Amino acid sequence: MGSRWGINRTVGQIYALLFVTERPMHADDIGEKLGISRSNVSIGLKELQAWGLVRQSRLPGDRREYFTSLGDVWEIFRVVAAERRRREVLPTLSVLRESLLVKAGTPDDAFAQQRMREMHELVDMANTWFDDMQRLSPESMAQLMKMGSRVQKLLSAKDRLLGAAAKDE
């Protein structure tokens, strides 16, 4: 899963180990369990911390740092989605906005700008939708996901009703 989320294999292995382990682990234990070097563990943990996917703590009487994954799968989903948004969606919106500020000099430029405007509108709408989803409780988000194709059927029924009402006017 990590490689599909844009996380390299070693980082994914570290995260998976922390996710399925009940107690906090220190870097030496992680390296030993996974058979990877201490430096790779350290780099992987820093990346996971940058993503906000692991927490660091200390145990009383122990100088070592211990690490745990986020416990709630919905929180993990939110963190990964928010980080992907920050790394991918927001820079794309920024580039599209900058491109739209340039005046079109030729018909080809005008066509290109129209296409970029359409892409900007789509990405901006998805970004706004993401904000809405981030505000939902895990229970509401699960209900929405379970609705699946029933949402499409509901929208189609609404369109039919509105179309029939327009004909009656």
Rank of each mutant, 00 (worst) to 15 (best):
A81Q: 00
E75L: 05
A16P: 08
Q152D: 11
G35N: 01
L70N: 03
L93Q: 02
A126C: 13
M25I: 10
K33L: 15
L96F: 01
L34Y: 03
S149K: 12
E83K: 09
L155T: 07
T10N: 11
A166N: 07
A126N: 12
V79I: 05
D131E: 04
H26I: 00
E121S: 09
A165C: 00
N127A: 05
N40G: 06
K46A: 11
A126G: 10
M147Q: 00
S149V: 11
K158C: 14
S137N: 00
L53S: 01
L155R: 05
W74N: 10
S69A: 13
A16G: 11
Q56F: 06
L45C: 03
D124Y: 14
G2D: 00
I43W: 04
V80I: 12
G44W: 02
L136K: 00
L45Q: 06
V151I: 09
D108K: 14
V79N: 01
V54R: 02
T92P: 09
M125Q: 13
Q134W: 05
R115L: 15
E22P: 11
V102T: 14
I43T: 10
F67S: 08
G163I: 02
D109N: 07
Q152V: 07
G71Y: 05
D124T: 15
W51N: 00
S69V: 06
D159F: 15
G105C: 06
R78C: 13
D29A: 11
S37A: 12
G71M: 12
A27Y: 08
S156D: 11
T128N: 00
E32D: 10
S37P: 05
L154A: 14
Q56C: 11
R64G: 02
K33D: 15
L154N: 14
F130N: 15
T92A: 12
K146D: 08
A164K: 04
N127G: 05
K158E: 12
R63A: 09
L162Q: 10
D109V: 08
A110S: 00
